[in-house]
């Protein structure tokens, strides 16, 4: 399995407009809801609920909002870049710029954890992070991921 097995071009947003946490979640989930054919409102609700239990703003400008959804047929990823950065209640209290959104079906024990681990690992690589931040379009994001995407 690779990250790009689950990330579609349509769910990549390279210029998020939202300026707050809830707005980012709404914007990020819009294309995902469309592709996965799930209710957008429900999706946002699940993510906000999850954030309430503890922020997924892991610091270093990175946010990995995630949640489980009953009606989802398979795992789906989203990606977003905020040029200005958003207050995402990050643990280091700094603005968050890079967002990986993870949505998994209710019963997908284990797999989402491996994917999450993989994403967290890759984002520790500053070169990769910078390539993402400098991406000017969807293709740049895909190329950046392609370059280091390996089976996990």
């Amino acid at each position: 399995m690779k990250i790009l097995d689950f990330l579609y071009k349509e769910t990549i947003i390279t210029d998020l407009q939202a300026t707050d946490k809830k707005g980012v979640l709404e914007e990020l989930t819009l294309p995902v809801a469309h592709i996965a054919q799930v209710d957008h409102k429900e999706l946002v609700r699940v993510l906000i609920e999850r954030e309430h239990l503890g922020s997924t703003g892991v610091g270093g400008g990175i946010g990995i909002p995630h949640g489980k959804l009953k009606d989802l047929s398979s795992l789906v990823l989203g990606f977003g870049l905020s040029r200005k950065g958003v207050n995402f209640d990050a643990i280091d209290k700094k603005p968050t710029r890079i967002f990986f959104l993870l949505l998994t079906p209710d019963n997908s024990a284990g797999m989402h954890l491996r994917l999450l681990a993989q994403i967290s690992k890759l984002l520790k690589d500053d070169g990769f992070k910078n390539r993402l931040l400098e991406a000017s379009g969807k293709d740049d994001v895909i190329h950046a991921i392609e370059a280091i995407d390996e089976p996990f």
Binding site: R50, L53, G54, S55, I64, H112, L113, L116, S120
Partner: peptide, 8 residues
Amino acid sequence: LTVKLEFF
């Protein structure tokens, strides 16, 4: 009381 990142 809040959870870590790995919490799904």
